[in-house]
């Protein structure tokens, strides 16, 4: 569409192009996902599916090679007493990539790394690109980048897209996950717009991702839904399949199953695979395992049987 008025900002045009999202109605919609009752075999299948979709994450200043090593061990063998699948990936800071690679070798568990000045992204582009390249060189299969929310909110769509394109290039064969940091985007309308903005410049199979997990707002069923619907609309109009990763705040099995119901009923079967859907989470895996053991053994499990969940009473 030709631009008719000069005072129409690119962001406003993008918002207009992708259409609005009604807050109350979408929150009502996702509440219905939460009423689905997942029992018996379907629960077992859902829990295992969720395990296979976990990006097992540690993003702490206190991370050490040792901690990463135990993370990698857990990623490959989530529970020795269960026949669960491996998780999809471990997710670590760039500095830890080479340690993770050393642990994982040529395992199927992928290595994801949060490059690009995570979590704020307030680092010069050149530095961010270098960081991405180094992480890939060290063995990262996937790069989780953050967009410059400030640029986006200021309406500088082109600059945001240019930066994403530059990171895509730096990724080479590595998959890219573009973190929108939805809690800083103000509204569902803008989450939808930012999703399209990213999808227009990333490759099939690349991801859009909700959050860094480092702000007060995390993934919710509602912002996940806005992004799933954007992916669906993009797919139906271009044929390009973009993958999705909610991150932060998904701590238990019940939540994970609700997210999977949303995927099943919004994007369908083709997205119910780890290539198309991931959970960015640190404590979710243990709860999934607890539930799986409960399903297997018929008894509710104590937390201390699972590593990293043994704090508290």
């Amino acid at each position: 569409m030709p631009m008719i008025t000069s005072n129409n900002s690119p962001l406003k045009r993008l918002l207009n192009d992708v259409g609005p999202v009604d807050q109350v109605a979408i929150e009502e919609r996702v509440a219905k996902f939460a009423t689905r009752s997942i029992k018996k075999a379907s629960k077992l299948q859902g829990l295992n599916l969720a395990v296979s979709m976990v990006d097992l994450t540690t993003l702490e200043g206190s991370d050490t090679p040792g901690k990463v090593a135990s993370l990698c061990q857990k990623a490959q063998h989530p529970d020795p007493e269960l026949t669960t699948p491996q998780v999809a990936a471990v997710c670590v800071y760039p500095f830890m990539v080479k340690h993770a690679r050393a642990c994982l070798g040529d395992s199927n568990v992928r290595i994801a790394s949060v490059a690009t000045g995570f979590p704020a992204g307030q680092v010069p582009l050149r530095t961010r690109i270098q960081e991405v390249k180094q992480a890939v060189k060290d063995g990262a299969d996937e790069i989780d980048m953050v967009i410059q929310r400030g640029l986006f909110l200021a309406g500088n769509i082109q600059a945001v897209q240019d930066e994403i394109s530059a990171v895509v290039e730096a990724c080479g064969d590595a998959r890219l996950k573009v973190i929108l940091e939805v809690s800083e985007l103000e509204s569902y309308d803008k989450i939808r717009a930012a999703s399209f903005l990213a999808m227009q410049v990333i490759r099939p199979g690349d991801f859009i991702k909700t959050s860094t997990g480092k702000t007060s707002g995390n993934a919710t069923l509602a912002n996940n839904q806005v992004m799933l619907e954007a992916i669906r609309d993009f797919y139906l109009s271009t044929g390009t399949s973009i993958s999705m990763k909610p991150a932060g705040g998904i701590k238990n099995s019940k939540q994970a199953l609700q997210y999977l119901v949303a995927v099943k009923e919004t994007l369908g079967d083709a997205w119910l695979i780890p290539e198309r859907y991931r959970f960015g989470a640190s404590s979710l895996l243990n709860d999934l395992l607890m539930q799986l053991r409960k399903q297997q053994e018929g008894v509710y499990q104590a937390p201390w049987k699972f590593s990293d969940a043994s704090s508290g009473y």
Binding site: S37, K39, A41, S42, K43, Q45, Y235, G239, G268, D269
Partner: peptide, 15 residues
């Protein structure tokens, strides 16, 4: 044309 498949990959048991 791209289509979505709402199939039985993950079917819900009776509840």
């Amino acid at each position: 044309a791209p289509e979505l498949l709402f199939g039985d990959l993950w079917e819900f048991d009776p509840a």
